[in-house]
Design a protein around this nucleic acid. Structure first.
Lengths: 162, 162
DNA sequence: GCCGAATGCTTGAAGCCTAAAACATTATCT
DNA sequence: AGATAATGTTTTAGGCTTCAAGCATTCGGC
């Protein structure tokens, strides 16, 4: 029996379950994420990637290099070139050559950037509380634990495959 | 007390919890989604939006209009113009004027599209089973239920706000 | 000290995505 | 029937995203 035949024979039985779970997970995240994007645009005329970058820098007052940001934000390197250029043009972020490595550029919040982010961050936290407010504390902690398990499962699967 | 002051006074206490939950949800979904995108590219040289559009059409053999697709896929209308044009150029999809509404265009799979999607779909199902395979059946069904609750919570929050 | 490998970043091409404006057609209300 | 509103699609401008190619610098081994 060929590999393709094996796949087709085995698949219908056990895998629909996981697929439904994945689709639901994706729908949930997409719904919340779209709403957050919409509110960020409406309230602050900004975007989620901009907000995420500011959030990282806010947590690291000494600055981060583009490479460090790229890894933390799980986006490609080239992506950050444009994103940081836009934020610099808006005056929220400043770019300086790394003192220890002449290849690297460090990014940090300007004082304007810090102020702007503080407002956005407070609103964001409220929005999330609003969107997830329909869950009881017990449900939230159960979900939190199950997602930790999910993360582990996914990480193991991607690593053994690679 | 002003609204802003109320927000700031209440926020630090109760909302960190929901924020951590949201970040974990987002991380999980992003990890799995990136891996699926990577595998779709490696195995079939295609993308997730293309795959999603084919999946919708596969479920509706009589075809769907761009507007229906837009709603089901939760993406903007204008987005589908380009996406469907690319899939048509690749010969996977055919566009026909709606017989009942001269404004509308219906999309359906070509026979090539149906064959291509069947392969991709089988592989996709296996990948998801792989990525979520670390969860027990009990964990999966508990997660499934909690995500339903999450979806309801988010939907209520977006509707009452709008 | 020198050379090749690894690392940090930028650029370019292509695709995905949105919001808003424009256009065509259909539905509704008198 | 005629005006108005609603719906279906496309276009436009701008931003986000990736991959791959290229350049600059640093690191490791010799």
């Amino acid at each position: 029996m060929s590999d393709a035949e094996t796949l087709l024979a085995d698949a219908p039985a056990g895998h629909k379950d996981e697929l439904r779970l994945w689709l639901r997970l994706l729908t949930c995240t997409t719904m919340i994420e779209s709403e957050i994007r919409r509110r960020l645009r409406a309230a602050f005329d900004t975007t989620l990637p901009r907000f995420d970058l500011l959030a990282q820098l806010d947590r690291h007052p000494d600055g981060l290099t583009l490479g460090e940001l790229s890894r933390r934000m799980m986006v490609s390197n080239g992506n950050l070139t444009g994103l940081s250029a836009r934020l610099e043009a808006e005056g929220l972020v400043e770019r300086n050559p790394s003192p220890t490595d002449r290849r690297a550029t460090t990014l940090r919040l300007t004082s304007v950037g810090r102020t702007v982010f503080a407002e956005q961050s407070a609103a964001h936290e409220g929005w999330i509380a609003d969107l997830l407010g329909g869950l009881s504390p017990g449900e939230r902690s159960a979900l939190f634990r199950l997602l930790a398990r999910t993360k582990t499962s996914a990480r193991n699967a991607t690593e053994t495959a690679a």
